[in-house]
Structure formats: C-alpha cells, structure tokens
Amino acid sequence: DADGRLGPRSREVRATTPAAVTDDTPPTRPGDTRGRAAGARAVRLTWAASTDDRGVVSYDIHQGGTKVHSVGGDRTSAQVTGLRPGTRYTFTVRARDAADNVSPAGAAVRLTTPGSDDAAATAPTALRASSHRADGAYYIDLSWVPPRGDGVITEYQIELDGRAATSLVYGDEAPRERAEYSFYAGTQAGVTHRVRVRARLSDGTWGGFSAERKVTTGTGG
C-alpha cells in the first residue's frame, strides 16, 4: 500500500517455458541457376526458389570462393555490379535460413563480361621496396598506393622472385592512401629479389600486378 506494507501472497502458479527448437536443417539447393552479362561491368543471375521448413531469409551470391552479394529470401534474381570487362567469372547461389543454415550451392554459372580487361587500371601503383636488418635477419619493406575502384581493398598478394610469397589481409582498417608491409627475407646480405603486388578486387578476382621492383638485402634499397 502507500505506506509500503505488503499484503498476503497470491496463490502459487507454476509454468514451464517451452524447450528451444533446434533448426539444423539447411534449405534445399537453389535450382535452375542461369545468368547473362548486363554490360561490361555487371551480370544478371536468376534461380528457382529453395525450400526450407522455416523459410528462406536470404540468398548469397558467390564469385569463386568469395561472397560478393546477397538478396532477400523472397528474391529469385540479382544483379552483380562492379565487375571487370573481358573477365571470366563463375557464380554460385546459396540459400540461407533464419538459423543461419546454408544450402548447398546451385549449379555454377560461368560468364564472360564483354570488352577488354585493362589490368593496369586495377594494379597497385607507386610501389617502393627497401630492406632493413633486425635480430640477425633481413626484411623487405614495401609500400604502395591501392588501386582505385568500388569498395576498399582488404587483401593483397605479394610475389617474390616470380612466385606467390604471402597474402596480406586487412580488417576494417584497410589503408586507402598508402599500404605498407614488411616480411622476412633470410639472413644473407647482398641477395637481390624481385617483388610486385596485386590486389583482390571487390568482385572477388585478382587485379593486375604492380610494376616490379628489385631490392637487395643489406643495402637498404
């Protein structure tokens, strides 16, 4: 009451919450996947709807092994943009339900966008290479300007002496103006290496390689 005094307790009532229902069944595979080029930088994909006991909430579009687009579960088509002219692509579609179960991929759709690919336009620029010594070993120091295009570049491949040496993956703080990376190059001085860099673009493909630079351990450049 207004004076803070409590009355007698009510009759006790017992209740049991229902057990959580586990959903571990993925949707069915999207069927009849098809596609066509929609100009030099886009493709149009269509598919037959998947089914799920609790409903499909989205469809994920993958280019190779990279998810590049997503649409709502009520959609059976999508347009993927930001592609490169004259480039061969492979797309697959997967359905996703509310429990985050993902279906098997539908049949792969292989398309080539019209036009010619200008690899130079997708290559990192202003590559610089030098070396330094630390803890008895030599390291190669690189810096470059990311290629301009749709989205932020978050992954690079560094080629050393004609072979892929390492991959560099950034998180949310991927550089926009100039990227830098340093990696181990052995313990011997006076060894000359050839280095170049390329970026994974927003469409999931690798862009062109930067200009090649030579760097000799123990000389600083």
Results as ranks from 00 to 15, higher is better:
D3W: 04
D3V: 07
G4N: 12
G4Y: 08
R5K: 15
L6S: 15
P8S: 13
R9G: 13
S10T: 14
E12P: 00
R14P: 00
A15K: 10
T17P: 10
A19L: 09
A19Y: 08
V21E: 12
T25V: 14
P26Y: 07
T28E: 00
T28D: 03
P30H: 01
P30F: 01
D32E: 10
G35H: 03
G35A: 01
R36T: 13
A38P: 00
G39Y: 05
G39Q: 05
L45K: 09
L45A: 08
A49T: 10
D53M: 08
R54T: 14
G55L: 05
V56D: 05
V56H: 05
V57H: 06
V57D: 09
S58C: 02
S58R: 11
Y59G: 08
H62C: 13
Q63T: 12
Q63P: 01
G65C: 09
V68G: 15
H69W: 14
S70R: 15
V71P: 12
G72K: 08
D74S: 10
T76C: 07
Q79L: 06
V80I: 09
T81N: 08
R84Y: 07
T87R: 15
Y89K: 13
Y89D: 12
F91L: 04
T92V: 15
V93T: 12
R96Q: 11
R96N: 13
D97W: 06
A98G: 11
A98V: 10
A99N: 03
A99E: 01
A107R: 15
A107W: 02
V109F: 04
R110N: 11
R110T: 15
R110I: 15
L111K: 07
L111F: 07
L111E: 08
T112C: 03
P114H: 05
G115R: 06
S116D: 07
S116K: 13
S116Y: 00
D118P: 13
A119D: 11
T122G: 12
T122S: 15
P124E: 01
P124F: 01
A126K: 10
A126T: 02
A126V: 01
L127P: 02
L127W: 01
R128C: 05
S131F: 04
R133M: 05
A134P: 04
D135K: 14
D135N: 13
G136W: 04
Y138M: 07
Y139P: 06
R148P: 00
G149Q: 06
G149N: 09
D150L: 10
D150R: 12
D150W: 05
T154W: 03
E159H: 11
L160H: 11
S167W: 00
S167Y: 00
L168C: 04
Y170G: 07
G171R: 14
P175V: 02
P175I: 03
R176S: 14
R178I: 01
A179L: 08
A179C: 09
F183S: 06
Y184A: 12
A185D: 08
A189D: 14
A189S: 15
G190L: 00
V191Y: 00
R194Y: 04
R196A: 02
V197F: 01
R198G: 10
S202G: 09
D203P: 08
D203N: 11
S210W: 01
E212R: 03
E212M: 07
V215A: 12
V215T: 15
T216K: 11
T217W: 05
T217R: 07
T217M: 06
G218I: 06
T219L: 13
G220Q: 05
G220P: 04
G220F: 03
G221H: 15
